[in-house]
Design a protein around this nucleic acid. Structure first.
Length: 116
DNA sequence: TCACTGACCGTGG
DNA sequence: ACCACGGCCAGTG
């Protein structure tokens, strides 16, 4: 084991991924946010890409993460293709009272939620 | 082992 | 106003 300690022996906060999940779970129903806001809310060297990458694994984590409430800066459902069904993301958002047109959230800024 | 990619965003020319 | 590029972490070929 001593010879294989070359890996990061410092656990640090590798749980930044779980922090993202925690934030996403705090998103109120009918509200949406973007990747950059979550990354900035955590404050660490996290970037929007890391958030997206974490979302990719989100479906493997419990409790379930409402990743459908996370869209990109333009309010476009960029990650809809990663759901069980390409239209599932839109269906979920519409079920929460949002209107989606052409894979884009209508009045996005109106339903925009800032992690605080 | 090295290099690239990814559900992005901000800044510079 | 538009185009191009860097940044951060982890996983995969």
């Amino acid at each position: 084991m001593n010879t294989a300690v070359k890996k990061k022996a410092i656990p640090r906060e590798d749980d930044w991924i779980e922090k993202i999940y925690g934030m996403v779970r705090r998103i109120p129903k009918g509200k949406v946010t973007n990747y950059g806001a979550l990354a900035d809310a955590i404050g660490s060297r996290l970037t929007s890409r890391m958030v997206g990458w974490a979302m990719n694994k989100a479906h493997t984590v419990k409790p379930s993460v409402p990743a459908h409430r996370v869209v990109n800066r333009d309010g476009i459902l960029t990650g809809k293709h990663h759901f069980a069904s390409p239209t599932l993301m839109q269906e979920l958002l519409e079920a929460e009272g949002l209107t989606i047109i052409d894979d884009q959230v209508v009045d996005f800024k109106q339903h925009y939620w800032i992690p605080s």
